[in-house]
């Protein structure tokens, strides 16, 4: 290995180490939550607390708005009842003049049920376990209702962090590949494992996606 090669090796090794250490808690969170997402069952109907809040100021035009605009107006209601988090959606039940607003954040799932005529809101909270919180983050912000997602500041922060996790993971895997290639004695076994892993995956994809 010449001078430039040695410098590249040292830099790659150090970056692999430090960036890997930084991203490792995120990887642990994502990996652990896989078991929860694949195997757990949670009774979401078990509510931890219910409270009624009166004299709610319902923003004008709330019943007619949709999409992101409705979420922005719903935020004004949610703030009044002391709830923070990502608003899932806003459902208006016209006959009953009710607004249903689910709000999520790690550790708590809340449903704010507003009676527009009486200007009251019933706030039902469900405290979630640490594992469910991590699973929630694993899926957040997610592909559904894309226009609405990221209506809470911390959801946007988490989105940046998860993107960063992916990019750092891709860097770690490529730099790891380079570091392995520098060890001549391990190339044969490594190639077999790389091929075996690829074959296993292709076989699954063939069964699931073809």
């Amino acid at each position: 290995m010449n001078g430039a090669g040695k410098t590249l090796y040292r830099w790659t090794r150090d970056l692999h180490l430090y960036l890997g250490l930084f991203v490792s808690p995120f990887l642990v969170a994502f990996a652990v939550s896989v078991f929860f997402l694949n195997h757990a069952k949670v009774d979401t109907s078990a509510v931890s607390s219910i409270a009624t809040v009166r004299d709610i100021a319902v923003p004008a035009g709330m019943e007619r708005t949709q999409g992101r605009e409705a979420v922005d107006l719903a935020r004004k209601i949610v703030d009044q009842v002391g709830v923070t988090g990502e608003i899932g959606f806003v459902r208006y039940l016209g006959k009953e003049r009710r607004l249903v607003i689910p709000v999520s954040r790690p550790g708590v799932e809340t449903v704010v049920d507003v009676d527009v005529s009486k200007r009251t809101a019933v706030v039902s909270r469900r405290i979630t376990s640490v594992m469910e919180s991590i699973a929630y983050l694993h899926k957040s912000p997610g592909p559904h209702n894309a226009v609405l997602r990221g209506n809470w500041f911390w959801t946007r922060v988490w989105k940046w962090l998860t993107d960063g996790t992916v990019y750092l993971l891709l860097f770690s895997s490529v730099s790891g590949l380079y570091l392995w290639l520098t060890i001549r004695a391990e190339r044969r076994v490594g190639l077999v494992l790389l091929g075996a892993g690829a074959m296993t995956f292709v076989a699954f994809l063939y069964g699931l996606a073809i």
Partner: peptide
């Protein structure tokens, strides 16, 4: 790392 490279 090598075995799971593609799936990762």
């Amino acid at each position: 790392g090598l075995y799971f490279f593609v799936s990762l």
